[in-house]
Amino acid sequence: MDLFLQYLANGVVIGSTYVLVAVGLTLIFGILGVVNFAHGEFYMIGGYAGIFAITVLGLPVLPAVAVVLATAAVVGIAAEAILHKPMKNRDATSSIISSFGLAVALQNATLIVMGPQPQRLNLDVSKIPVLSSLPTDFGPVFLPQQRTLIPLTMVLLIAILYVVLRYTWTGRSLRAMAQHATVARLCGVRVERVAVVTFMVGAALAGIAGMLMSSIFLVYPIVGNMIALKAFTVVILGGMGNVAGAAAAGLLLGITESLTSGYIANSMRDIVGFVFVILVLLFRPQGLFGKAVDRS
């Protein structure tokens, strides 16, 4: 039982990053209809930005988060200008292919600038006020503070996102766009601004995930490949464009992987998610948490 709880905790930590990356991905798809294969690179750039801010500039954590957010905002604006603005009236495949191209370009640019060797963020938790006072043992479960930080940040960011989507003008216009772009425009929603904001939010969520993960894992130029595939798995499981579904499916995938690794075999963990996706696509194409709607 003790082991089961530890596996569960490990799953929640890794699942929280899936949630952060997948929610951005599903927002961009749900609102703009762009299938963004460069989303894993947003995560990778967030990791490098975090390392740059903390290791090179020597900033404390909160200003470093601001650096990551600023970088993500720039990346989001640029990605929107490349993947959405010139392509929005064309076939969806155009933006899919150009997002692949953007992913490869970003990976190789990073390879040239940062080199191929993996990097790590040295996050000194003892200097962070609230975090350093957190316990590392929760009954039989052991979690270092860097790991505890990840689900906490995830819950906080998703809560903020929920409030923004629900109660602000920007949030309402995002949701209006998701329901029907043309009608939203007729009602006075500034469609261009919504598109930029969507990309910025997506890049920021993925960038924060990348920064947090680089303190427990490593960052290297192609690290985004696998995380993007996992995020797509989560988005399909949760229902394309469904934010709450993506959050639930992300945690579910993390826990499933952890349990597979603990009770079956570690080599099976990456396979499980993709088997799930194939089954879902075959038998419940609207996703585990999606509603099937007939087009009127």
Binding site: N10, I14, D270
Partner: peptide, 20 residues
Amino acid sequence: RDSYNAGEQDFSSMLTKLRT
């Protein structure tokens, strides 16, 4: 004996099991 895919990041559950 455990295996992993090159480039995998999270080994915590595999190592937790190994510790037992």
